[in-house]
Computed example of a mutant assay.
Amino acid sequence: MKLIRKILLPFSLLYWLVMAVRNFLYDTGFLKSQQFSVPVIAIGNLSTGGTGKSPQTEYLIRLLKDNYRLATLSRGYKRKSEGYVLADINANADILGDEPYQFYSKFPDINVAVDANRVNGIDNLLQLNPSPEVIVLDDAYQHRKVKAGFYILLTAYGDIYADDYLLPAGNLREGRSGAKRADVIVVTKCPADITEAEQEKIKKKLRPQPEQKVYFTTIEYDIVVYGDDSEISTKEVKEKDKVLVAGIAKPKPFFDQLKNSSDVCLTYPDHHDFSAKDIDDILAAAKDRIVVTTEKDYVRLKDKMPAGKLFYLPIKTSFITNGDDFNKTVLNYVGKSSANG
């Protein structure tokens, strides 16, 4: 263990105690969790970020939207608005936050809302006419004021929660025992060629409950980068001199996917709000070259960059094995919960 982790361990023990008491109070019913009459699916993780929640949320949207009236509810991290906001034609990343605005831009036929108070957010969504038949909560695993009907816990390959420590010595928001609340565990960002033996090794580390299913996914990159009114194949983009910009938790895979030896790679904090100076720096680095960014950063940058200058690379989650079983498990929950409701 690194020295800094050893120094911070006492603070992690204090953090563990606070979280353990909090979870105990919810588990025993002393603190109340609210349930709802519609199926509610919560996606989240035990760690502080970088597990691929947005691609997993989009996977669920694609799975459900054609058969159910669907809504997503997020906190709207780093947005400049307050309270409950339902996305409409006036929405942007400042109003919704980058990830919810990404959902709204890609799936305008669903309801996309933000509210730090998830109970209030769901109550507002259920007052819509027509109201949603299924609600997906993005990044709500620790939001225990809502009792979701189905929990999807994500953990990233190479950084699984079983190998991590609680904040501040590590990156865990709560102890590993919190994984017991999950209905399914998804190991994200795996190599596409991960072997069955390695999958079994990871499962043993995670120690799932007998009723929990563990799935393995990889990130699938599009073969095209997109701009406002044009697109370029990734094969061609790799050969171009360009500037790559990423304001995400773990940008290395994005850079590795597109960069060549002459490219400039600019890294910013996750959910970064790009300032006028940042734009000037990016344009100065780019000069006559194009700028390629992540889909999440694109929604923050697109109105701040010259037309034709900015492109983004979409990604999506792809199940390595047993994807049909995952789909069936989710659809069975939604179908049964809808019938019961």
Rank of each mutant, 00 (worst) to 15 (best):
12 S>Q: 03
275 S>Y: 11
289 R>I: 01
295 E>T: 12
341 G>T: 09
158 G>Y: 11
127 Q>E: 15
1 M>T: 13
217 T>G: 14
90 N>F: 02
132 P>C: 02
214 V>N: 10
200 E>P: 03
94 D>C: 05
73 L>V: 10
117 N>V: 07
25 L>R: 03
48 T>C: 14
317 T>W: 02
15 Y>C: 04
30 F>G: 02
239 E>D: 14
86 L>I: 09
269 P>V: 05
60 L>H: 11
196 E>W: 03
107 F>T: 10
325 D>L: 13
185 I>N: 10
17 L>N: 07
120 N>T: 07
181 R>E: 04
7 I>Y: 00
262 S>Y: 02
305 M>G: 10
94 D>T: 05
146 V>E: 06
231 E>I: 01
293 T>S: 15
229 D>M: 02
14 L>C: 14
305 M>L: 09
107 F>S: 06
284 A>Q: 14
253 P>S: 14
140 A>E: 11
182 A>F: 00
321 T>S: 09
234 T>N: 05
329 T>R: 12
103 F>A: 03
49 G>R: 13
155 T>M: 10
90 N>H: 15
88 D>S: 14
285 A>H: 15
278 D>E: 09
319 F>Q: 02
248 I>P: 10
34 Q>D: 09
120 N>F: 01
216 F>G: 13
121 G>N: 07
330 V>C: 04
135 I>N: 07
49 G>C: 10
191 P>G: 08
139 D>V: 09
128 L>S: 07
121 G>T: 12
211 E>G: 01
197 A>G: 01
57 T>A: 11
151 Y>G: 02
147 K>N: 14
101 Y>K: 04
254 F>Q: 03
333 Y>D: 03
280 D>H: 08
261 S>F: 04
251 P>Y: 00
16 W>P: 00
211 E>Q: 13
132 P>E: 06
1 M>S: 15
55 P>R: 04
51 T>S: 11
168 P>A: 08
78 K>H: 13
